[in-house]
Simulated assay, not measured.
Amino acid sequence: MPKQRITKEMVVDVAFEIARKGGMEKVMVKSIADKLGCSVQPIYSYCTNMDGLREDVGNRARSFIGEYIVSHIDKNDLFRSTGKAYIQLAKEEPYILKIFIMQERKNILSLKDIYETETSPQMAEVIAKGLDISVECAKQLHLNMLIYTIGLGTIFSVSSPGIPIDEIFLQQEQAYQIFMNDTLRKREINNENSNHL
């Protein structure tokens, strides 16, 4: 039987599965070779250094998360359900979330840069339309919830034996209400100022 040709895609797939089950620290050339049933040589030919492989696994985690969120959102409650989907991800795929969070973000000089890197440009417009607020207010509300949800998800994914998910959802909902009330208060102030002009 001819030997199987090992491809870079196969190496990344196996590295991702290892990281998904045990964390990035479990991704080693030997463990990848063992899973592929080959020597370490083909792995080294694609991974001149582990940083490149970690970046590939991080990109795969980012894609996985995007697909996961899309499959778990409620189109009738897009904003809230997206936040809940991140928390559900933290419960079901804690290592994937850790990989995503720990992935280096280059050329980030502000929270605005993070927002533009981590979100869909249309999301702020959807939020603005749904809540009847300006796009700028929607971006700030979304950024607040993004920061808060990632923080909650991180706490949730590293807690042992674990915080009940309902407690996390309740905390998330309370934050949403606080941020939302602040956004609506600012909208009222802006409307009053506009009426006085």
Rank of each mutant, 00 (worst) to 15 (best):
K3H: 14
R5V: 12
R5K: 08
I6T: 06
T7V: 00
E9S: 09
M10Y: 04
V12L: 11
D13K: 02
D13M: 06
V14D: 10
E17H: 11
A19H: 10
A19Q: 10
K26G: 05
S31H: 07
I32E: 01
D34S: 08
L36N: 04
C38D: 15
Q41S: 06
Q41T: 08
Y44E: 04
S45Y: 02
Y46Q: 06
G52M: 12
G58W: 03
N59R: 14
N59H: 12
R60D: 03
S63F: 07
S63E: 15
S63C: 14
V70Y: 03
V70T: 14
S71V: 03
S71H: 03
S71I: 00
R80N: 04
T82E: 12
G83A: 07
A85Y: 01
I87W: 01
Q88H: 08
Q88G: 06
K91I: 15
E92G: 04
E93C: 08
E93K: 07
E93I: 03
I96Y: 01
K98C: 03
K98D: 04
F100N: 12
Q103A: 11
Q103T: 13
E104R: 09
R105S: 03
K106P: 14
N107F: 02
L109T: 13
S110H: 00
S110F: 02
L111T: 11
L111C: 05
K112D: 12
I114A: 05
Y115M: 09
E116I: 08
E118S: 11
S120N: 06
A124L: 09
V126P: 00
I127C: 09
K129S: 07
G130K: 03
L131F: 03
D132N: 14
S134M: 05
V135T: 10
C137Y: 03
K139W: 01
L141D: 01
L141C: 01
H142L: 14
I147D: 01
I147N: 03
T149N: 00
G153T: 01
T154V: 04
T154F: 15
F156A: 01
S159P: 07
S160T: 03
G162K: 03
D166M: 05
E167V: 13
I168T: 13
F169E: 12
Q171C: 13
Q171W: 02
Q174I: 15
A175C: 05
Y176V: 09
Y176W: 04
I178A: 14
I178S: 14
D182Y: 15
T183D: 10
R185G: 05
K186F: 15
I189M: 02
N190E: 15
N191F: 09
N193L: 13
N195E: 14
N195G: 07
L197N: 14
L197T: 11
